[in-house]
Design a protein around this nucleic acid. Structure first.
Lengths: 182, 182
DNA sequence: ATGACTTGCAACACTTATGTTGCGAGTAAT
DNA sequence: ATTACTCGCAACATAAGTGTTGCAAGTCAT
């Protein structure tokens, strides 16, 4: 049932160690009913993970990262991912799970997409020529994570959050006239 | 015993759901011995949390955030915090725990210090006049978290990590000549 | 109405972590 | 040597979550 999956997402987002009982209660069904659909707790989490992974892959794919100008693609993919990540906070936290082949594959592919995009951005002069793409990517991920956390806690439009993420990633918060630290 | 606390930190850093048995084993003592010193699992985690909170407070205090030029203070406090956070990864993840009064107090005070510092930085022209200090602080925290994660995983000098954090925070990764997104 | 299906409920077995206790061995100080 | 202390070990009790099963009640399509 989608009802159960959505309830599980809500409950686990608030408390990853939550009980099957709590999930069942949130879904408005008996615990045994949850077990009838998902044999084990692990199976439930796995299905949740797979579901989120597919949404994630779709969010990235629909941004056409390879055929759009880097800056536009960066903004688009950010907004799309933020939409998914705010709605599937818990499930998305498991996207990098090695135990889930599909999620792991998606995660790897997205990382490749991201690295290609950043490289194109650097070549196009959007990123500094000396930008460390590995560190850039990790910071980008961290910014998305932070923005999504805000989105989960306080709501907010994915577009507005994406704008702030991209702005922070590209410009930072320093004054253009300030001295450089290193 | 400090031995037990340090073992607990190592074990919990690798797996926050680890067992008392695993902690005892890592400390090279029997499980009952751990229970003799820490009545409950919760008490153990609490002591860890308090210990880390004190280190954290000391790390921030020793940077003299209020009496040093903003840019210098920013770098210093970043490096100090990174040192603590890489060594007490698990315990520091609990610094914001509301269940622990001391840790919560430290966390609040540090947040205040951080906000004052950022405000001074903006007034001094280190940050852009239009920088949203709330968002700036959260990004700063996220950058520290990310850098610390790298430090835990791959080692690395706190100074080098701090440089990258401050650089990313102030300059971002965009080319100075690139168009602004918003 | 009949049959197929799903659900809630109660009860059960099983597992795992937690916390406690008693005892005997080892160690150190006096 | 006596005392005091700590530790390892084994055993036990408890609690909580997990997963299973049987049965009764309800729904729905035909």
């Amino acid at each position: 049932m989608r009802t159960i999956l959505e309830a599980a997402e809500r409950v686990f987002a608030a408390n990853p160690a939550a009980t099957m009982e709590q999930v069942a209660q949130a879904a408005g069904v008996a615990r045994t009913t949850v077990h009838r659909r998902f044999a084990t707790r692990e199976a439930l989490v796995e299905e949740l993970t797979g579901w989120a992974a597919r949404q994630f892959a779709e969010a990235v794919a629909s941004a056409h990262v390879d055929s759009t100008p880097p800056l536009v693609a960066l903004y688009q993919v950010t907004a799309n991912v933020l939409r998914v990540k705010t709605n599937w906070w818990f499930a998305m936290s498991r996207t990098g799970d090695r135990a889930h082949p599909e999620a792991a594959r998606v995660h790897e592919e997205v990382r490749d997409d991201c690295e290609r995009l950043l490289r194109r951005a650097r070549e196009a002069g959007v990123l500094r020529p000396d930008a460390d793409l590995g560190w850039t990517r990790r910071v980008y991920y961290a910014l998305i994570h932070e923005a999504a956390a805000e989105g989960v806690a306080e709501g907010g439009e994915a577009e507005a959050l994406a704008t702030r993420v991209v702005d922070a990633l590209l410009r930072g918060f320093g004054s253009p006239t300030a001295p450089v630290i290193a």
